[in-house]
């Protein structure tokens, strides 16, 4: 019960107000870290904007948002699984099939378009693909009781194989009115994908952070025994988290087709960056738990870093290294602060 009470007043966009009023000693470290990571975010933006004047222009920010849309939506899908599955990555919530899911959904979308169907049918086909992958994951984890890491690993192999079967490892071009609209610019000259990401995040955050079902996901993930004792439908909630994640994969698949004007191979490369983004996201939350807005912030953090590097002509070779260092820095800070707190 206390779980819900603690979780209810999660307010995301008032870092200052939060960090100056630590209600308990334990919250101090968390607030410091959260304020620290937001500060680091702002500092990086500041440094880049000084060195690359174009960096903080509306156009560039829009570009970063647009380029982050696909990974952001995948990371939000993974966040839902992390919330419902708990923090232990090996035995708890993880969905390794997300990137492959995006690849297959994109291939299904492009193939449906090639077969002469319209946008509505193609989008539906892609979403159904993602949904079905989510259902298989849910059945494997909740029904058969397979550890999520193993279950989604096997599903990832199946899905990646199906994508190869469908595409014969080639690019399937597609151009439809929807794809044209998605790859065009919206108001303020900002890419349409940027708006898609923002709207998607708001809807997902509203569902996960502010509905009873969303709050129950946290209860199930953090205290499964307590949740079960309180009469929550634990199995159904975990299953729905995997299905939601599958749907995110399907949706990201459609967007990826618009981004590359066709389905392309190599979606598996997205997997680890998405895992990193989703895990980093918890640093941007008040209680250091995965949240949808936190994941959006961490997606943008990584997006701005990559973009700033490009503007400064720093070799793209360093991007993955900096991402790695970032994880280690953030996580060491978290661990050390937690230790002080204890």
């Amino acid at each position: 019960m206390s779980v819900d009470i603690q979780l209810a007043p999660v307010i995301h966009f008032e870092p200052g107000a939060q960090s100056f009023k630590p209600s308990r000693g334990g919250n101090l470290a968390a607030s410091a870290l959260r304020a620290g990571s937001l500060l680091a975010f702002v500092a990086i933006l500041f440094v880049f904007s000084l060195t690359a004047p174009y960096f903080l222009s509306v156009g560039n920010i829009g570009n970063v948002l647009g380029q982050s849309a696909i990974s952001g939506i995948l990371a939000i899908g993974l966040t839902v699984v992390l919330i419902a599955g708990g923090s232990n990555v090996v035995t708890g919530g993880i969905d390794l099939s997300l990137a492959a899911n995006m690849g297959l959904s994109a291939a299904v979308y492009a193939t449906t378009v090639q077969l002469g169907y319209g946008d509505a049918a193609a989008v539906a086909a892609a979403l159904v693909t993602g949904f079905l992958i989510g259902v298989v994951n849910a059945a494997a984890v909740v029904g058969a009781g397979i550890v999520p890491l193993l279950a989604t690993l096997a599903v990832m192999n199946i899905v990646a194989g199906l994508e190869l079967v469908l595409t014969q490892n080639t690019v399937i071009p597609a151009s439809t009115p929807l794809l044209t609209a998605l790859s065009s610019s919206g108001p303020l000259g900002i890419p349409a994908l940027a708006y898609v990401l923002l709207v998607f995040t708001l809807i997902a955050a509203a569902i996960v952070q502010y509905t009873p079902a969303g709050l129950r996901l946290y209860a199930v993930g953090e205290f499964p025994d307590a949740a079960r004792a309180a009469g929550l439908p634990v199995r159904r909630l975990v299953a729905s988290a995997f299905i939601a994640s599958g749907l995110c994969g399907g949706f990201a698949g459609v967007l990826s087709v618009s981004n590359l004007s066709g389905s392309t191979t190599g979606s598996g490369e997205m997997l680890l960056p998405v895992v990193v983004t989703a895990l980093l996201g918890s640093v941007f939350s008040r209680r250091l738990v995965p949240t949808v807005i936190g994941t959006l912030l961490s997606t943008l953090f990584v997006g701005f870093l990559v973009n700033g590097f490009q503007l400064l002509n720093i070799s793209s070779v360093l991007v993955s290294g900096v991402q790695g260092l970032l994880i280690l820095l953030v996580v060491s800070a978290t661990t050390l602060l937690r230790r002080q707190e204890a």
Binding site: V89, S320, G321, L328, T335
Partner: peptide, 28 residues
């Protein structure tokens, strides 16, 4: 030493290792 969870620590190592290899081989 620091107490980072193995999953995250080795994930960080994986990413850093990828960059180091590309640096050592002129971009791969």
């Amino acid at each position: 030493g620091i107490g980072i969870s193995p999953f995250l620590a080795t994930l960080g190592t994986l990413f850093i290792g990828r960059s180091i290899q590309q640096l050592l081989t002129n971009g791969g």
